[in-house]
Design a protein around this nucleic acid. Structure first.
Length: 723
RNA sequence: GCGCGUUUAGCUCAGUGGUAGAGCGUUUCAUUGACAUUGAAAAGGUCGCAGGUUCGAUCCCUGCAACGCGCACCA
């Protein structure tokens, strides 16, 4: 006889206990899985490397959704008999982590400079220990069936070897170079940043129109511009340029116009006198200049603007560094301005220009300013000696893998974002002037690598690359391609390439694209086959969830309130078609009610059947009601499988919910009460077993708990029951 | 500026070339027997706006609007 189950399902009595049961079984580790002898999938592996969360804090709703998505896929594949591995881990997250630790120290009135590099790094490691473990435990709370014996950290000992191997590979290929280039410099963090590490904020500013005097008298005729009818070139001896940053004029080395621009045609090649600096600068022609903007004439500051740097290089213009790394004017800006903050210098310059009568006009102007994606501080473009990775070849192979369909995005339209970036890519500035990170593996180098350089290696580094590679004939012959020949039986051989990469859309280029080319180049294989871009979770009003704004929701609080299965249900219930989710807690409420419904369905069926039969012969069923529910059940199963194959998780769950609640409980169970015969009881029991299996990937604790209370079962755990 | 997405019930969202669906909420009734975290029923929507294709459009096409997002070297 079955023991009496309580009438309400209580996740608090269940979830922790069940998770321990799973962990004790060892089945999270694919090496311990009872791979069925009969299965044709015997040797097939299925691997997902979790996107390692930053060790800056704790999991947010996006992590919870993503973990649930991956756990659904992993659990289903495990039940289907695949040798299934889900690798857990965390990311050291260079600048982000350095910033939170600095902020934490600041509360005690200490700066990292007070402490010194070594002492500070000790503090960061302490932080990592604490928060890294919190994150891993939160994954457990969600019910994630990860193999904890394979937990990785992007700065653990072996990972350092991976990073060094990758760096050396690129070095040998001649794709790494050190050069002084205009890069994005974060004044607050005192480090360079790549183009992707910026955020843009709209800011109201001014557009100043400044007169630059011609040194020779010209014979220009007055004529109207077609593009900007309001602007009329006066018959005078000056050119007007428009700028939002007058302080950079101290570093001007030319004024550029479009070669097609008729109003300036006769002026190209003539000289101007740069105001204040009284420097002679040429008027040059470059087709990158937009004739329609401002006056059509642009001041060129090669040191402090990315476009100007390119134009300067093309035209061999001298570089005047007038803004320093601290965001202050340099000596080169002249003694009057040296040491001033840029904003202060700007005011001073405007004032002087006004006195000189060189300001033609000023307009209100709204433009985007670049900010650091980690600290929100000002970005100054300035020349700096940095390491760069050449992107031409790498971008090419990453583009081709997606265009050929070897790697697929779901939903597919995200491929555009990926391709658009790769097709217009610049060399990657990979050095950072912070303390926390992988040191550049060369003698005498103090900088660390962009945190995304190591993240880019995640799927194969987490599986043991390059330690798990061996020298082979193949790799000698194809030395050009650096094919890694994995040692037989190694994780790398068994689980690489991985199958799925599930992540948020904001790191498609920052991370996904870089994993693709790194994997293809370093291992000779794509790192994964399918990229799932899951929904972004917003507040109910459609605003960004953010801790600092107080609009964030802590998934752990929801778990405490409703249970992990209900939270998983609520997340997936809302995950429809990759659309952004306007978070609605009532979906979690529905999940909690549903868990209770399933619990009571099980309770009822177990009360009915004391001698259950695991299988039924569908063809032998005599009663129409029984036949109908069994047919509906297999239809539901097919539909769920189809949706999951398409990564339509929400649809799959809605389908299952409808079947269980409305078909099975509302209709069939009610009619079975009237039948009350052996055949219908067998049918009931069969349905119970099937819904437990179908629902297990979505709500694993609940279903496992019920399974553990069945009088007869095939396997010791539902987790490894045959799908 | 270029591109993408969204617009359906009070709220959050599914969906279909032919009498519109779910969850939550609301209203009424039921209930000692799996479940009140329940059951039965009801109210509630000219499916953003304007054209077009069609026998027929919420669905396909065009335009517009609102909101959101991404990209860009807008000086």
């Amino acid at each position: 006889m079955t023991k009496e189950l309580p009438s309400a399902y209580d996740p608090k009595q269940t979830e922790e206990k069940i998770y321990e049961l799973w962990e004790k079984s060892g089945y999270f580790n694919p090496d311990n899985l009872p791979i069925s002898k009969s299965s044709k999938l015997k040797a097939k592996s299925y691997c997902v490397a979790v996107p390692p969360p930053n060790v800056t804090g704790s999991l947010h709703m996006g992590h919870a959704l993503n973990a649930t998505i991956q756990d659904i896929l992993i659990r289903k594949k495990r039940m289907e008999g695949y040798k299934t591995l889900w690798i857990p881990g965390t990311d050291h997250a260079g600048i982000a982590t350095q910033n939170v630790v600095e902020k934490d120290l600041k509360k005690q009135g200490v700066s990292r400079h007070d402490m010194g590099r070594e002492k500070f790094l000790e503090k960061v490691w302490e932080w990592k220990e604490k928060y890294g473990n919190i994150i891993l435990n939160q994954f457990k709370k969600l019910g994630s069936s990860m193999d904890w014996s394979r937990t990785r950290f992007t700065m653990d000992e072996n990972y350092q070897k991976s990073v060094a191997a990758a760096f050396n590979h690129y070095h040998e290929k001649g794709w790494l170079y050190k050069a002084e280039r205009v890069i994005n410099w974060c004044v607050k963090d005192q480090t360079s940043l790549s183009d992707l590490e910026l955020e843009y904020k709209e800011e109201k500013g001014k557009l100043w129109y400044i007169k630059y005097l011609l040194l020779e008298k010209s014979k220009v005729q007055s004529q109207k511009s077609k593009v900007n009818p309001n602007y009329q070139l006066p018959i005078t001896n000056y050119i007007v340029v428009a700028t939002t940053r007058p302080e950079t004029m101290l570093g001007d080395s030319a004024v550029a116009v479009n070669p097609k621009d008729k109003k300036y045609k006769n002026l190209v090649g003539k000289k101007l006198l740069l105001p204040i600096m009284n420097r002679e600068i040429p008027i040059i022609a470059d087709k990158e200049i937009d004739m329609g903007f401002g006056t059509g004439a642009v001041k060129v500051t090669p040191a402090h603007d990315l476009l100007d740097a390119r134009i300067g290089e093309k035209h061999n213009l001298p570089i005047y560094k007038v803004i320093g790394p601290l965001g202050k004017m340099t000596e080169e800006a002249g003694a009057r301005f040296a040491g001033m903050k840029t904003a202060e210098a700007r005011g001073k310059i405007i004032e002087e220009l006004k006195q000189l009568g060189l300001i033609e006009k000023e307009e209100d102007y709204t433009h985007n300013i670049a900010l650091c994606y980690r600290c929100g501080g000002i970005i100054e473009p300035l020349p700096s000696l940095q390491w760069f990775l050449k992107m031409d070849e790498l971008a090419k192979i990453a583009i081709s893998a997606v265009k050929k369909g070897e790697i697929k995005f779901h939903p597919q339209n995200w491929e555009k974002i990926y391709l658009n970036w790769l097709e217009n890519i610049h060399d990657w500035n990979i050095s950072r002037q912070i303390w926390w990170g992988h040191k550049i593996p060369l003698e005498g180098e103090n900088d660390v690598l962009d945190t995304w350089f190591s993240s880019a290696l995640w799927p194969f580094a987490a599986l043991g690359w390059p330690t798990a590679c061996q020298q082979s004939q193949k790799s000698k012959v194809k030395s050009q391609k650096n094919i890694c020949e994995p040692i037989p039986g190694s994780d790398l051989e068994q689980f690489y390439p991985t199958q799925i990469l599930s992540t948020a859309r904001d790191i498609i280029n920052l991370w996904v694209a870089r994993m693709v080319y790194s994997g293809l180049e370093l291992t000779g294989e794509k790192p994964f086959t399918d990229v799932i871009i899951h929904a972004t979770i917003l507040t109910k009003e459609g605003k960004r969830m953010s801790k600092s704004l107080g609009t964030g929701i802590d998934p752990m609080i929801l778990i405490e309130k409703y249970g992990a299965d209900a939270v998983r249900f609520g997340l997936i219930w809302q995950a429809m078609g990759g659309q952004d989710i306007h978070w609605d807690e009532t979906a979690v409420v529905a999940g909690k009610k549903f868990a209770n419904k399933v619990w009571n369905i099980a309770r009822f069926i177990l009360q009915q059947t004391n001698n259950p039969q695991l299988t039924i012969d569908k063809l032998q069923l005599k009663n129409t009601e029984n036949k109908k529910i069994i047919a509906k059940l297999s239809e539901t199963k097919k539909s769920i499988e189809k949706y999951l194959d398409e990564y339509e998780f929400g649809q799959a769950l809605h389908t299952l919910y409808d079947f269980i609640w409305h078909d099975l409980a509302d209709k069939y169970i009610e009619s079975s009460k009237k039948l009350n015969d052996k055949e219908s009881k067998q049918t009931l029991y069969y349905c119970l077993l099937e819904i437990l299996k179908l629902l297990h990937p979505f709500m694993p604790h609940l279903t496992e708990e019920i399974y553990q209370n069945l009088p007869s079962k095939n396997k010791d755990l539902l987790m490894v029951e045959e799908w």
